[in-house]
Computed example of a mutant assay.
Amino acid sequence: MTTQRLTPYPRQQLAAQPIGYWTGAAHREVVGRIRKELATESLTQPHWWILNHVAASPAHWTRAELAAKLTRYDDQGIDFTEVFADLAGRGWTTEDATGTLTLTEAGEAGRIRAKERNLRAHEQTHAGITEEEYVATLDVLRRVIANLGGDSDLPE
């Protein structure tokens, strides 16, 4: 995996850069790559979130509970009703009499395929970045968010 070579800039010039621009640019690139990988399986991020939550806690989530939890992460106005219906229509999820969701074997297989694609995107994103640098970056971003009154806790 090859990483692009960065143009070096003086520290003072970098320090004057607007964080809003750079966090937005990073968001577009990272999320765009993830969405591209998921699209190969005709999945959206909400599909991915649902699959992972249901896999992590089988027979725990109902559609309403999971949609309420995941809506805060959606930036595209996704209709979760349609996403749940799509997963059920594919035969990837089932619901018991109480409406509790479980992944089927096909759903777990699809989740694993998407996970493998996302891992490749994750590896490319982290190329040339040490764990220490990554953690420091996240800590700085969390402080920026907290300074502005936002929720800087880790997502569940």
Score class of each variant (00 low, 15 high):
47 H>S: 13
72 R>H: 02
140 V>R: 12
89 G>C: 08
46 P>L: 10
112 I>V: 11
73 Y>I: 05
126 H>D: 11
134 Y>G: 15
117 R>H: 15
120 R>Y: 05
142 R>T: 09
25 A>D: 07
92 W>A: 09
118 N>C: 02
64 A>P: 01
100 T>S: 05
29 E>V: 05
10 P>V: 14
90 R>F: 01
91 G>I: 06
11 R>K: 14
63 R>P: 00
91 G>T: 06
144 V>R: 03
68 A>S: 09
125 T>K: 03
77 G>Q: 05
131 E>D: 13
142 R>A: 13
25 A>I: 06
52 N>R: 00
149 G>V: 03
79 D>M: 07
58 P>V: 01
28 R>M: 12
118 N>G: 04
84 F>R: 00
54 V>W: 00
141 L>M: 10
40 T>I: 15
50 I>Q: 00
71 T>K: 01
78 I>L: 11
50 I>F: 00
56 A>R: 01
147 N>H: 07
116 E>A: 13
138 L>P: 08
92 W>G: 04
91 G>W: 05
67 A>P: 04
127 A>L: 10
144 V>C: 06
155 P>N: 04
117 R>D: 14
68 A>H: 01
71 T>P: 00
109 A>T: 10
32 G>C: 10
106 A>P: 07
57 S>Y: 01
141 L>E: 09
36 K>S: 12
11 R>E: 14
67 A>I: 04
150 G>T: 03
47 H>Y: 07
49 W>F: 11
35 R>C: 14
43 L>V: 11
122 H>L: 07
27 H>E: 11
74 D>K: 02
40 T>Q: 15
94 T>W: 04
2 T>V: 11
8 P>R: 08
153 D>N: 06
2 T>F: 09
75 D>G: 07
47 H>F: 05
122 H>E: 06
83 V>R: 07
18 P>W: 07
37 E>T: 12
130 T>C: 14
32 G>F: 09
8 P>T: 08
73 Y>D: 10
18 P>K: 12
85 A>Q: 11
117 R>W: 06
69 K>I: 02
